[in-house]
Structure formats: structure tokens, C-alpha cells
């Protein structure tokens, strides 16, 4: 067997060594993002993880490395009840929001002019100018048993229905938070589809629904999934909707965090809940993004 000789002057080896060198120019442009992530994501996350091992004595946190908070929180049934309930509620919110947003986004992407689309997106951004808490409280007037919604239903001989302090109330709150954002993300994704694909599908005899199902949705898959992921993340971490419109019945994990800090200033135990939430969100986001960017075989 002849000995293996590596020719360092060969073009392929030269190319490899250039690639392995640190590209300072590219790094310079990436630096702000890296610094930002370190300062505002990695740093606080590490501190939060460390804090989950701290102890509280006389309402003051003390540095320690104890498992007490983890054992305490994860051994309680109410923690796991809240965990699964929060996942269920956020999933329901994601499904409802994505389904309701799709027809609106489809219409904005394909049925209106570019100018109307721009105006619509601008109008969808406007709700973010006002406080989410104020918008949530305004639902009290509409959803109360003696409120506007039941009054209108009453004219049709329906109701009154209990809407506040229910899962329905929580979902309405989540929609208030996420609906405009999901429509915007879906619209941008759908509007960028190569129209020739849709025309080709129609030329090949596909009906409207078949075209949407087999061409439009797969082509816009990445944007649609990212919209859903944002919806899940925002719903999963939201305190306002399940507390004020869902009546904290039962509590979600963000409500449990508030409860934990209110009683005895147990920030380390709240950090345990927060770390579990972060890990869950990372798993969900990673899985969803993997699916979003997976190439068709």
C-alpha cells in the first residue's frame, strides 16, 4: 500500500486552510449580535440558573448551591399541573391564532394590491402602540355577562354566556397579544411565494383548495411555522391574559412565578419555574425551526 502524501499546495487543501482562518471582517459585523446575545440573553440566563440554587433568608437572597428549590418545586403536583395546563393553553392559542390569521393573511397576500397590503400591515402594527394591559382590561366591558358581546347575542336570542374567567377569556387575551403579529408574519411569508408555482399548479388542473394545501402552504411553510412559534412563545410566557381574563383558574406557570415571589420573596423558586419554561421554549422553538427549514425529499 503506498504511503499517504498530502500536498499542501494542492488547490483543495489551500481552500480549506483559508476557510479555517478567522474571517475578521465577517466577525466584526457579527460582533454586535454576539455581544447583544451575551449581554441580554446568555448572561441573564446563566444568572437565573445560578439563582435557582440560591436560598432566601429574612427576605434576602443568599448565594448558595442547594438543590432545595428544585426539589421543592418539582415535587409539587401543582407545579406539574400548571406546567401541562400552560403547554395546553399555549398550544390551543397557537392553533386558534394560526387558523384565524391564515385567511386574513391569504387575502392580504393575494387578493389586494401592494398599497392596500402596506396599509393593512401598518394598521396591524398600531395595536402595539397601546398598552397590552389596557387592551386586556377593555375586554371586561365586552366579555362581561352584562357586556357588549352578550347584549348583541341577546338580540339573536342567544346567551348570556360566561366568557370572562374562562379558557375562552384567556384565548381572547392571547389573540389580543399575538393575532396582529401572526397575520403580519403569515402575510409576508405568503406574499413572497413565487406566483409561477401557483399558476403552474392551476395549469396542471389543481383546484383552489388543492393549490393552497399542496403548493401555497408548503411554499410558505417557514414563515407560517415561525408565526406559530412566536404565538406559542408569547402565549406560554404571558401573565396578563390568563390572570385577568382567565381568572387565574387554574394558574399558568407565569402566574405561579408571581405567586412564588409574592410569598416570602422566593425568587430562587421562581427562577426554577423560569428555567423550566426557558428549557421548554428552547425545545419547542428548536423542533419547530428544524421542521420549518427541513427540505422536502
Amino acid at each position: 500500500m503506498p504511503p499517504l502524501v498530502i500536498d499542501s499546495q494542492s488547490p483543495s487543501i489551500r481552500k480549506l486552510s483559508v476557510k479555517n482562518k478567522i474571517d475578521l471582517y465577517a466577525l466584526t459585523w457579527r460582533m454586535p449580535v454576539i455581544v447583544w446575545q451575551l449581554l441580554f440573553f446568555v448572561g441573564p440566563l446563566l444568572f437565573m440558573i445560578a439563582m435557582s440554587f440560591f436560598l432566601v433568608k429574612n427576605y434576602r437572597m443568599q448565594e448558595a448551591f442547594e438543590m432545595k428549590n428544585w426539589i421543592k418545586m418539582t415535587s409539587r403536583d401543582y407545579f406539574w399541573d400548571a406546567y401541562w395546563y400552560t403547554i395546553g393553553l399555549a398550544t390551543l392559542s397557537t392553533v386558534v391564532t394560526s387558523l384565524l390569521a391564515f385567511p386574513a393573511a391569504f387575502g392580504l397576500a393575494f387578493k389586494v394590491s401592494a398599497s392596500v397590503r402596506r396599509w393593512a400591515i401598518f394598521l396591524l402594527i398600531i395595536p402595539f402602540f397601546t398598552s397590552y394591559l389596557v387592551r386586556t382590561f377593555s375586554w371586561y366591558v365586552i366579555l362581561a355577562e352584562s357586556g357588549v358581546a352578550n347584549a348583541l347575542l341577546g338580540y339573536l336570542g342567544l346567551g348570556p354566556y360566561k366568557m370572562l374567567n374562562t379558557v375562552f377569556g384567556s384565548i381572547v387575551g392571547y389573540l389580543t397579544l399575538t393575532f396582529p403579529l401572526v397575520i403580519i408574519l403569515q402575510t409576508l411569508s405568503l406574499a413572497n411565494i413565487d406566483r409561477s408555482l401557483l399558476e403552474a399548479a392551476q395549469n396542471l388542473g389543481a383546484g383552489r383548495l388543492r393549490t393552497i394545501w399542496s403548493v401555497t402552504i408548503p411554499a410558505a411553510k417557514t414563515g407560517l411555522i415561525i408565526g406559530a412559534v412566536f404565538c406559542f412563545i408569547l402565549s406560554f410566557g404571558d401573565f396578563v391574559a390568563p390572570y385577568y381574563l382567565g381568572g387565574s383558574k387554574p394558574p399558568t406557570l407565569p402566574i405561579l412565578i408571581i405567586d412564588t415571589t409574592k410569598a416570602g420573596q422566593q425568587w430562587p423558586r421562581a427562577a426554577v419555574v423560569a428555567v423550566v419554561m426557558m428549557v421548554t421554549l428552547m425545545v419547542v422553538a428548536y423542533t419547530a425551526i428544524s421542521i420549518a427549514y427541513r427540505k422536502r425529499r
Partner: peptide, 14 residues
């Protein structure tokens, strides 16, 4: 106080 608070959390989740 922790016992009472723990029960309160359980009650809210019951």
C-alpha cells in the same frame, strides 16, 4: 406561612 401558601397554590390548581 409557607405551609399556608403551598396549600393556596394547590387549591388554585385543584
Amino acid at each position: 406561612l409557607e405551609d399556608w401558601n403551598d396549600f393556596w397554590s394547590e387549591y388554585k390548581n385543584a
